[in-house]
């Protein structure tokens, strides 16, 4: 436990702040990488997920691809891309986007599928076009689950962005890898503790947002659980 205290002291030591390898610079890099990855992954996965959720087509393909990506070791992917595009930020960025897409995609289409079919039928019956149904019924009602998907993705990305510095991509992995190389356990611990704090902060922020985005008047959609089952796959009793 002594080492643990040393790790915290290392993280608080003023001499480790400021400059290119200052803690605050590395935290900023880490957060910027994570945000950038989430933004790019969202741009790709949300429209795709909405299309799958709205039409009900391609769902099994999406599940299959997501499963395959789960089996894909991120470290290996990151390193092989680094070997191709050279060391730096690009390789970890691509690898992290690949990692983040399945969660966001699942959140997007699960959100649409969880919408009560009767609400969609009603919207169609009052004369809404398909685009209006997507934009004004399905998207708002599915938002809590989409945020849930972003929450999982954000956690994964913050955790895995540690590996970015292994190929020279920056971020908080710097302290961990430098500590490993020089056998500086307090430094490794400091880096680890800061990453854990960021991960938990991300969880906290997203859980609040998830609660805020539930449309007024809808309490049934309140996310008790991120993995809410869709109404489509539920079978009738008997």
């Amino acid at each position: 436990m002594n080492l643990f205290v040393e790790g915290i002291l290392w993280a608080l030591d003023p001499s480790h702040y400021g400059g290119r390898n200052g803690i605050e610079t590395r935290v900023e890099q880490h957060l910027l990488i994570s945000l950038g990855v989430l933004a790019v992954a969202s741009l790709i996965a949300i429209p795709l997920g909405y299309a799958i959720g709205h039409t009900g087509r391609g769902r099994s393909l999406a599940i299959g691809v997501s499963g395959a990506i789960r089996a894909l070791p991120t470290l290996g992917l990151l390193i092989i891309i680094a070997l191709i595009v050279n060391v730096g930020l690009l390789a970890p960025f691509i690898a992290l986007v690949v990692l983040a897409i399945p969660s966001v995609l699942a959140g997007a289409y699960a959100g649409f599928e969880a919408v009560d079919r009767r609400a969609i039928d009603a919207a169609r019956a009052v004369g809404m076009t398909e685009l209006q149904i997507v934009g004004r019924v399905e998207a708002p009602l599915g938002l809590p689950l989409l945020i849930g998907g972003l929450r999982t993705a954000s956690l994964q990305v913050i955790a895995t962005a540690v590996l970015a510095d292994y190929v020279g991509g920056g971020g908080l992995g710097h302290f961990i890898f430098l500590g490993l190389k020089t056998n500086d356990y307090p430094q490794m611990l400091a880096g680890s503790i800061i990453v854990i704090v960021l991960a938990i902060a991300s969880e906290a922020v997203f859980s609040i947002v998830q609660r805020l985005v539930v449309p007024a008047g809808v309490s049934a959609g309140r996310p008790q659980d991120v993995r809410v089952r869709s109404t489509r796959s539920r079978t009738a009793p008997g």
């Binding site: 956690l155 913050i158 955790a159 895995t160 540690v162 590996l163 992995g173 961990i176 880096g191 680890s192 503790i193 990453v195 854990i196 991960a199 938990i200 969880e203």
Partner: peptide, 8 residues
């Protein structure tokens, strides 16, 4: 699950 792997 919120604890990143390498730090853990």
């Amino acid at each position: 699950y919120a604890i990143p792997s390498l730090p853990l």
